[in-house]
Simulated scan of single mutants.
Amino acid sequence: MKWSNEVTDWYSLAEKAIHGSNLTLEEGLAVLEADNEEILPIMQAAFHVRHHFYGKKVKLNMIMNAKSGLCPEDCGYCSQSIVSTAPVSKYSMLDKESLLAGAREALARKAGTYCIVASGKGPTNQELDQVIEAVQEITSTMPLKICVCLGILKADQARRLAEAGVHRYNHNLNTSKANYPSITTTHTYDQRVETVKMAQSHGMSPCSGVIIGMGETNEEIVQMGYALRELGADSIPVNFLNPIPGTPLEGTKRTSPIRALKVLALFRFICPSKEIRVAGGRELNLGTLQPLSLYAANSIFVGDYLTTDGQEVTADHQMIEDLGFEIEMCALSAV
């Protein structure tokens, strides 16, 4: 791959990332604060890193909203929280057959990872039993990785999920430690960190990410990347706030497409070998620039999110094909 003189600095960041040197705060800020005219050289450098570790493969994930609404938490971004007035579906944990049907749909969408997500601070024992029963059947009959997101876990719950065959546990940091109290007050940033570490200690691959656009500073965005690198998150969903009417953050200005691309490039430079996933808010915030996101990221969600619509599945498949990329099918031996 040849580089012009104009992109030497970005190329240096890419080479630094590939060879295991950590991005400095000043270098991270330079990515976020670069002139918009630099976006193509930045994305070219990010692709250099992405290609080194993942080639042109794209991992697909599908979310199942296994329990909706009914949440006692006050997360300002979430339509399912106790402080939200958004008109969302409310139902208790889905039964095994519904979760199995979701897994079959994930396969139909060419997803390699099936994400079972439930609202609430943490699972009850009965809810955990329902999820475990479904996971055991899915893992014994379908070529899918299972990622579970049930909130804050107790040690015994983490052990049981791992023993049942859960590959990954998701618990997003969402924002910086400094910004956290302005977003959520019913639990702490440290509790989230502890849950990610607990899942990892029981053999589940840690999945943790962020939501961009909730009042954080550029320095805090860089620090979020550092925090996820320190945690050793294997999969990093980068969400961009969808300010849903009825939530405390409704009316928040969306992240511009070019800024979103800079953020994705930044996370690729900070966590070069990790799965960077363009997650919630992709369609709203990136708009027509969605294809460019895959020059930094190597993973997307296909289909709808928890309470918001995603891009039509065949459009995602076509986008990947048009880029000359290929869908990575599930390899259960990988992390």
Rank of each mutant, 00 (worst) to 15 (best):
L231H: 15
E6Y: 02
S176Y: 03
G215T: 07
E283N: 12
G112V: 15
L266W: 14
S182N: 12
A86Y: 01
M62I: 01
L286V: 12
N174V: 09
M62E: 04
D74L: 12
D74G: 09
K154Y: 12
I39Q: 03
L128N: 10
T141R: 08
K154Q: 14
R254W: 05
A334D: 14
D190H: 07
N218G: 11
V58I: 15
A334H: 15
I212L: 07
A260E: 14
H202D: 04
G251V: 15
E6M: 03
A260N: 05
L161P: 05
E105M: 07
A30E: 03
E250H: 07
Y54K: 08
A103N: 05
I183L: 14
A111K: 11
Y11D: 01
V335F: 09
P272T: 07
P206W: 11
V7C: 00
E133A: 12
K16C: 05
E97Y: 02
Q318L: 07
E219T: 11
D9R: 04
V210Q: 10
A315R: 09
Q136E: 07
K154E: 15
I221K: 06
A227N: 10
E230L: 06
F301S: 08
C149E: 12
S205A: 15
K197F: 13
G122W: 12
T217L: 01
M142V: 12
P237I: 12
T188D: 08
L231N: 14
A17M: 05
H171P: 06
S84W: 04
L40P: 01
G246K: 06
M1Q: 13
V117I: 13
Y91W: 02
C75W: 06
L32W: 04
Y226F: 15
E137I: 11
A334M: 13
E37R: 15
T307Q: 06
I63S: 01
S84D: 03
H317Y: 10
D156Q: 14
L60N: 10
D322P: 01
D156R: 10
I146L: 06
H52W: 11
Y11F: 02
I152Y: 00
K2Q: 02
T124R: 04
R50Y: 01
K96G: 05
G251D: 05
N242S: 02
G165D: 07
A45M: 00
A279C: 15
F301R: 03
D234W: 09
E275C: 08
V335T: 14
A111D: 08
E250Q: 15
K2Y: 01
